[in-house]
């Protein structure tokens, strides 16, 4: 749970997720146990000792085959000192100083019913939860809604909506998510791709009702992650469908509307 010491990790893989988001696979010098929803800190150090650090959510699921590795997804922010450096400068084989995993609140235990609501790049820690559920055959516990402006902004499209809607070639026959997953609903707020059964528009209570099992025995914990605006509106919708406030966990980022 603690931040722990800094580790020097090696970047073993870099993947483009969208035009503005990349995933970095990091190999630690030792096994790095983590829980879905946790984050790490990446610290950059200049030759003169100047440092810049930022927190990034873990996107991958714990993998017993590769216990010393994890993946983070980094969205390129306008003027972002750290995200800009990671996107433009870092290549496979580079070393990055990393601390963590950190966080004991916005984490999924892997067994309790959970409702995941992600806006934009807020899907990253929720993806770790979904991937964990898929890896352990426990997707029956999860429902997920991802809200993005358009298909171009959807991270992990192949895994979330399947290869056909994502418009990509299957990378392999065993690729998870080749079939659209009934537990995942993607909401496009500005423009919906062709073939989509939902018109573009903001998240509504109907979207929530569409994924919530009508007769859930246990009220799931809702994990909400996204911008301040998304977190606020998602929380309000949850309250509107009667979801208890003490079963909502929120992780938000970015400036508030009232800054």
């Amino acid at each position: 749970m603690s931040g722990g010491p800094w580790s020097m990790t090696t970047v073993t893989e870099i993947r483009d997720e969208t035009a503005r988001a990349k995933t970095y696979r990091l190999r630690f010098p030792a096994p790095v146990p983590f829980r879905p929803g946790q984050h790490v800190i990446i610290r950059l150090t200049a030759p003169d000792g100047y440092t810049a650090s930022r927190a990034y959510s873990i996107a991958s699921a714990p993998d017993p085959q590769r216990p010393d590795e994890l993946e983070v997804t980094v969205e390129l922010l306008e003027g972002g000192e750290v995200s800009g450096f990671l996107h433009e400068e870092v290549v496979v084989g580079d070393e990055l100083e990393v601390r963590g995993p950190i966080g004991g609140w916005f984490v999924w235990d892997g067994t309790s019913p959970a409702l995941l609501l992600g806006g934009g790049s807020g899907v990253v820690p929720l993806m770790s939860m979904l991937r964990t559920a898929r890896a352990t055959a426990s997707t029956d516990r999860l429902r997920m809604i991802v809200s993005v402006r358009s298909a171009d902004d959807l991270l992990y499209a192949t895994e979330l909506v399947g290869t056909e809607l994502a418009g990509t070639e299957p990378a392999g026959t065993e690729l998870a998510g080749t079939d659209p997953d009934p537990t995942v609903r993607v909401v496009y707020t500005r423009s919906a791709p062709e073939g989509s059964d939902r018109r573009a528009g903001r998240l509504t209570v109907e979207d929530l009702r569409a994924v919530l099992p009508p007769d859930a025995g246990v009220t799931p914990i809702a994990y909400v992650c996204g911008s301040a605006g998304f977190a606020d509106s998602a929380t309000r919708l949850l309250e509107e469908v009667g979801h208890p406030a003490d079963r909502i966990r929120i992780e938000r980022y970015g400036p508030s509307a009232t800054a």
Partner: peptide, 11 residues
């Protein structure tokens, strides 16, 4: 001039 907001719970 921004004032980031972080919360863990419903406001």
């Amino acid at each position: 001039t921004t004032w980031p907001v972080l919360t863990a719970e419903a406001t």
